[in-house]
C-alpha cells in the first residue's frame, strides 16, 4: 500500500487548497508520502500526480531533484553527518570515520537490522556548533565520538522515540487554516482588482 491512505488524502487536499495552483503542493505532498511509507514509491508518485493534475513523470522529475526524497527504503534512523567547511575544520572527517566503525557500515550504507542509514551531508546551518549531525533532521551539536556512541545506543534502546520519529516524519505539527479565518487561494487569472487596503486610507 503506497498510495496515500484516506486520512492522508484529506490532509493532501487541505494542503493543495492553500495554493493558487495545485502543482505547488507537490513537494509538501511528497513529504507526506515519505512520512507514510518511509520513502517514495512509484505508486505514490502516480497517486500524487492524480491529486495535483500532472503526469507521474512530472512528479518523478520534481521528486528526483531534491535530496531528502528517497526512492529505496532507508534505515529507521537516517544519520546525516555534516562535512562542509566549518564542520570539516572541527573534525567532521574523524567523526565520520568513527561513525562508520561504530555502525560497521560505510557512509551511504544501512545496517543489517534496518535501524541506521549513515550518510554524508552538506552544511546543516549549525556551523558554530561543529561538528554537527542530524538524525531524521533532528540536530546533535558539538558531537564527540562518545556522544555518537551514546546516541546510537539510545536510539537502539528506544530512549529517544519521543524526540526523534521514524524516517519520513518532518514537522510533528501541521499548519491548519480554519475555514472561517482563511482568505483562500485564488488562481491569479481570477484576480482582477488590487487589494482593498490600497485605497490611500488607513486600514484600521
Amino acid at each position: 500500500m503506497s498510495r496515500l491512505t484516506d486520512a492522508n488524502v484529506v490532509i493532501a487536499k487541505e494542503i493543495i487548497g492553500r495554493y493558487p495552483r495545485p502543482k505547488s503542493a507537490l513537494v509538501p505532498l511528497l513529504h507526506l508520502s515519505q512520512e507514510q511509507n518511509g520513502y517514495i514509491t512509484r505508486e505514490a508518485m502516480v497517486h500524487l500526480g492524480e491529486l495535483v493534475g500532472v503526469t507521474s513523470a512530472e512528479v518523478y522529475g520534481t521528486a528526483t531533484f531534491y535530496e531528502m526524497f528517497r526512492f529505496e527504503p532507508v534505515g529507521k534512523y537516517l544519520i546525516n553527518m555534516c562535512g562542509t567547511m566549518s564542520c570539516a575544520l572541527m573534525g567532521a572527517a574523524e567523526l565520520m570515520h568513527h561513525a562508520e566503525h561504530k555502525l560497521g557500515i560505510k557512509a551511504g550504507g544501512t545496517t543489517a537490522d534496518g535501524m541506521f542509514t549513515l550518510a554524508h551531508a552538506e552544511c546543516q546551518a549549525a556551523c558554530t556548533e561543529a561538528p554537527t549531525l542530524q538524525v531524521n533532521y533532528r540536530y546533535r551539536f558539538r558531537v564527540t565520538p562518545t556522544d555518537f556512541d551514546n546516541l546510537v545506543d539510545d536510539l537502539r534502546a528506544g530512549k529517544l522515540a519521543d524526540e526523534i520519529p521514524a524516517h519520513g516524519v518532518l514537522a510533528k505539527v501541521r499548519q491548519r487554516i480554519p475555514a472561517d479565518k482563511g482568505v483562500g487561494a485564488v488562481a491569479p487569472e481570477d484576480v482582477t482588482e488590487g487589494p482593498a487596503w490600497l485605497d490611500g486610507k488607513p486600514a484600521l
Binding site: 492553500r18 513537494v27 509538501p28 511528497l30 531534491y66 487561494a185 482593498a196 484600521l204
Partner: peptide
C-alpha cells in the same frame, strides 16, 4: 487571515517547506 484586527487588510500566510 481574513480582516486582520477587524480591518480591511486580509492576507493568508502559507507554510511551505523544501526538500
Amino acid at each position: 487571515g481574513k480582516n486582520i484586527l477587524g480591518s480591511k487588510f486580509s492576507v493568508d500566510i502559507v507554510l511551505h517547506w523544501g526538500a
